[in-house]
Design a protein around this nucleic acid. Sequence first.
DNA 1: ATAAAAGTTTAGATTAATCTAAAAAAAGAA
DNA 2: TTCTTTTTTTAGATTAATCTAAACTTTTAT
Lengths: 220, 220
Amino acid sequence: MLSFTEENYIKAIYHLSDAGQLAVSTNDIALHLQTKAATVTDMIKKLANKDLLAYEKYYGVSLSKKGKNNALSIVRKHRLWETFLVEKLGFQWDEVHEVAEQLEHIQSNLLIEKLDAFLGHPETDPHGHPIPDKNGKVKQIKQFSLSQGKNGHKYIVSEVKDGSATFLQYLAKHDLYPGVTIQIKEILPFDGSMVVQLQNKQKVTLSKATSEKILIKSNE
Amino acid sequence: MLSFTEENYIKAIYHLSDAGQLAVSTNDIALHLQTKAATVTDMIKKLANKDLLAYEKYYGVSLSKKGKNNALSIVRKHRLWETFLVEKLGFQWDEVHEVAEQLEHIQSNLLIEKLDAFLGHPETDPHGHPIPDKNGKVKQIKQFSLSQGKNGHKYIVSEVKDGSATFLQYLAKHDLYPGVTIQIKEILPFDGSMVVQLQNKQKVTLSKATSEKILIKSNE
DNA sequence: ATAAAAGTTTAGATTAATCTAAAAAAAGAA
DNA sequence: TTCTTTTTTTAGATTAATCTAAACTTTTAT
């Protein structure tokens, strides 16, 4: 069984490697976990000894199959807890992250399976991130950035790529959540900002920077 | 903020001292926490420095006001989580303890207040233990042991004094939970065992040892 | 191609929580 | 009361996770 700290390293590496695709550098991990490179070197040696990752001196690490499975289990727990906090306890979606960071380390398969059932086996969390299933399978949705959407077309918001409280609060104010249907009404050529209409007919103007951080999927 | 370990010591001392009434010995704490007396001595020195308890060498410890408040907050969290696990996730009442031992250490006031509201501000957990309120106030119920009940009288089961899985499973099999109304039908003079009738008219014979571990309160 | 910069590792310490073994104090028994 | 037993504390180590400073590798720039 992994310690709290080991789990955090595995999760960080998973995210930084884009779900285990690419190798991750010592400094990236240190930055992400707000710790020092020397500390990271020590820890990745330990994780390498446990066969959770492959480590080549000076060339970073990449997760093993076992490491990826561990990461997926932690991500699953994190996202189920976030869903619980928002759907059942009424948290704002910008308030959930820190608490879920703690809850994801609770060790109990029974708990997580019962929580999953209680939530109705959700496929995505409140930010639109897919929740890995019990076996670590992640359902991939065909999605792309809102900035690539076409004028006049309707889409469903599927995910937001920025978890900062200010950004999430901004979106919340304009009722932009995963699951919401939007239609692109206008794309301004000079700065790439766009006007989108919500279900309730309200229109919002989004800067290019913002529309790049919102992912959408086709309207079926 | 207290560490996981510090919280466990404070909670153990709280329970062993009967809610902070009496002093607790080093050995009792070591036994309860499955650790060594030397370790306990070190830790209580640390907790004494933080003004969580009063420590007199060779004469044990007693919780300070601050220590008691901390303990009550942990107990509150533990019991709210147990209630959640049983009421919302469908855990059996003998399965909840270990998981609640982990959940009680999650740090978030918002979480615990929202959980409390979600559960409808329960006054007792599934074992009938009172849940301290936000301010640490514990509602005391006038209760006594079933073994002291009178023949023919009706009572409500209010608490069970043994948390072992086997005992709880035994009670569950006979539908004996806090909140259930029972009537004493017969008390056998030679061994003190008694026959009680449940709401559904079923009768169960309980040994003296068992009836001593079940607490009851008056039927209003 | 080589020197400077950036990134990484090693060496040596530190802190929290734990342990064993030995010393000291308190409690119980003769 | 004095000796034995039990309980508690102290001393000295250990492990996990962290740090700083120095050494070493790789990358970048001139």
